[in-house]
Design a protein around this nucleic acid. Sequence first.
DNA 1: AGAGCGATGGCCT
DNA 2: GGCCATCGCTCTA
Length: 182
Amino acid sequence: MAFNDTISVAKKLLGALLIHESPEGRTVGRIVETEAYLSNDPGSHSFRGRTPRNEQMFGPPGKAYVYFIYGMYHCFNVVTAANGVGEAVLIRALEPVEGISLMKKRRKTEDVQNLCNGPSKLVMAMGITKEHNGHDLKKGCLRIKMIDTRLKIVTTTRIGIKEGAKLPYRFYVKDCEYVSKK
DNA sequence: AGAGCGATGGCCT
DNA sequence: GGCCATCGCTCTA
């Protein structure tokens, strides 16, 4: 698929499968909540230009941007837009599909609805690490399988940011029990 | 059910 | 030195 128009990609990623083959086992989740971060967007890491941290956002689309936050968590993004343009889609929630027992072990909870309903939760459940920063999501151990669906999509504002808080750049699957916040 | 808050460290000004 | 695209615990209802 083309990873050019970031808003479109954020919507098209809903329903897609995120797959990770790790030494511990295979986990698969269906993407149910995303947020778009654009280049002219004050809420985006890329807004003030290229830095060592946000470097991957400016790279070619279809790669992973994994960043460290709050001293203890990581978040996972799909890089979008042309090479040189700093845009990405934050994955905020997954519906667990495969490897649920491994997800429970990694997350230290038995509650299936609490495994992947947040950007750092799904990173933990899927076994994603900072080593995946810059990884090509079209091939290899961590990849995305696009699924053509006709899901009902809710469009709303993003979570946990100050700048650009009113922009309608968060998207989730309507009536889905696995999103982080409705 | 919802508000408040501490943990914890790299990055940016 | 202040700021985070968060989470899980505690406290109040």
